[in-house]
């Protein structure tokens, strides 16, 4: 019982606080957004530390995995950020010469993520949890590779057919997708440091089920949300049936127009 209370206090409640913080980012008031950021950092940090604070909880393995892959993810995102903002865009933030460095960091991040799977070396972040392979790694890796290959193949096709002169971008997206799919196939036929081919085959099958389940669940909730709003909007009176605006509303409209037009009062 005490373990459950500890898990609730140090894992589940922080996770709920982080989710609340994330939801607060969609509010208009800046004060609430800032408070939400605070919640997100506090809740997220406590959740990420849960593999140290409540190691007896089976769910703490997920935070151990996220912490283990964090260096690789940081390399990937920092690399892509530098490469993007060193390019020819209006909000250029980095020198053009830093672009190859960005790409190098991105490739190093992907290589680190794969090296962690293929080699169980001391200098690499460990994917073990309680003496076994972290079960969330068996969920993350196939989902990531499958998701990446699907999304990259799809975007490669869309960019080629929707934009003009986008052949290079389309080809590079396709190549990265092919690499990702190649690693999936390799896992199906070769044992690695953490999984056998049988385990990986089952993981891929479950990852496919997961992705389809997520797509279906997301689709249904969007449909329900749309219907809830549509039903209400349809019951509202049409523009022709609305009562004339009150003096207060006219004042408000005049104020908005005045602010947007600018200029002197007597013009």
């Amino acid at each position: 019982m005490q373990d459950e209370i500890r898990a609730a206090l140090l894992l589940w409640i922080p996770l709920a606080i982080a989710s609340l913080g994330m939801a607060m980012q969609f509010r208009r008031q800046h004060s609430l957004q800032n408070l939400g950021k605070g919640f997100l950092i506090l809740g997220g940090s406590l959740y990420l530390a849960s593999f140290l604070t409540v190691p007896e909880s089976p769910s703490a393995a997920s935070s151990a995995l996220i912490v283990a892959i964090l260096p690789a993810l940081l390399l990937i995102f920092v690399g892509l950020y530098i490469a993007t903002f060193a390019g020819d865009i209006p909000v250029k933030r980095f020198n053009r010469k830093l672009r190859p460095l960005g790409l190098l960091l991105f490739i190093s991040g992907l290589a680190l993520l794969e090296a962690m799977n293929w080699y169980d070396e001391k200098w690499l972040p460990s994917l073990h949890w309680e003496g076994e392979t972290n079960k969330y790694w068996l969920i993350f890796r196939p989902t990531f590779l499958l998701g990446m290959s699907s999304i990259l193949f799809c975007s490669s096709y869309v960019i080629k057919h929707m934009g003009e002169n986008r052949n290079d971008a389309s080809r590079n997206l396709f190549l990265l997708g092919a690499f990702s799919f190649g690693f999936l196939l390799l896992g199906l036929y070769t044992d690695n440091a953490y999984t056998t081919t049988d385990q990986f085959s089952t993981s891929v099958w479950l990852a496919t089920s997961d992705l389809f389940g997520i797509l279906a669940g997301l689709g249904l909730s969007i449909i329900v949300f749309t219907l809830a709003i549509l039903q209400y909007e349809r019951k509202r009176p049409g523009l022709g049936n609305l009562p004339p605006p009150s003096n207060e509303q006219l004042e408000l409209a005049a104020d908005v127009i005045r602010k947007n037009l600018g200029g002197e009062e007597n013009e």
Binding site: L80, A83, T84, R96, Y136, G147, M148, I151, D168, A169
Partner: peptide, 26 residues
């Protein structure tokens, strides 16, 4: 964990597309 994997894949796709498009302009 699954959502994190999908989000990482989506962010990579968006950035890689941008990197390629901006490099072409350059």
């Amino acid at each position: 964990v699954t959502a994190l994997a999908v989000m990482v894949a989506i962010v990579i796709m968006i950035f890689v597309a941008f990197v390629n498009i901006t490099s072409r302009n350059q």
